[in-house]
Structures are given as C-alpha cells and as structure tokens.
Design a protein around this nucleic acid. Structure first.
Length: 112
DNA sequence: CGATTGACGTACG
DNA sequence: TCGTACGCCAATC
C-alpha cells in the first residue's frame, strides 16, 4: 500500500479506516507498521492529528487495555467517553468494556 | 543545541 | 503474578 507515506501519515490512514463502533490500540497500529516498539509515536501522531487532519477518529484509538488514556486531550470533560458511548461502546471507569470484542485489528481487517 | 516529556508497549526481575 | 526498567522518535522546554 502507500508505503511511501510517512509513519505519521500511515497512522492517519489506518485510524481513518477504523469502522464505526470499533476501537483499536496504539500498539496494534504500530505493529502493523512494523514498529511495535514505537507505539509512543502513534500517540504523538494522534496529538498532531487534530493539526494535520481533523477527520481522524482518534477517540477510537486507546491503549492496549482499552483505557481512555487520551480522554484528557479531547476535552476538559468526558467528551471522548461520550463519543464512544454514542458509538455503542460501554465505558466504565474510563475503560472500554468487552474491549476485545470491539477490538479492530488492522492486520486482520486491512490485511495487506 | 542538550535535556526532558509523551494519547505506549515489551522485557526483565 | 506484580512491579520496575528500557526502548522509540519527535516535539517542546
């Protein structure tokens, strides 16, 4: 696929491909790009995502345990939680319930 | 220009 | 099984 795109750009592409009501983890994206240990960069990409493109559903990206690690970055309140709940997900204590069930693996779904 | 931080994850003890 | 340490790369201080 577009392997000429930068790491950040690839992250954006993947995140944009996340279907409605589905979630994934930073590590999954990083691993898909071949840089499993660079999961922090995925987070940084998200941080810049609102600057590069605002059509990035970053709220569907959480850490590997389904915890809303970046909810504070979306809004001062529980905006991220509300969005995810609106997508049909169940959030308890800033944590996605049945995370594995709603998990969207780019390696399986995008399957290059 | 050097040191620290950061939306994480894996490895090791 | 749980806790701590390190890696990764870019941006910011």
């Amino acid at each position: 696929m577009s392997e000429e795109l930068s790491f950040f750009n690839q992250v954006y592409e993947i995140v944009k491909c996340i279907p409605f009501g589905r979630v994934t983890s930073y590590g999954a994206i990083a691993k898909y790009l071949g840089t499993a240990k660079s999961s922090r960069m995925v987070g940084w990409a998200m941080n810049n995502s609102h600057v590069a493109l605002q059509n990035i559903p970053a709220h569907r990206v959480v850490n590997r345990i389904g915890l809303l690690s970046g909810k504070q970055h979306f809004g001062t309140g529980d905006e991220m939680k509300k969005i995810l709940e609106k997508e049909g997900l169940e959030i308890v204590n800033d944590q996605i319930q049945n995370f594995s069930h709603h998990f969207w693996d780019p390696q399986i779904e995008l399957k290059y």
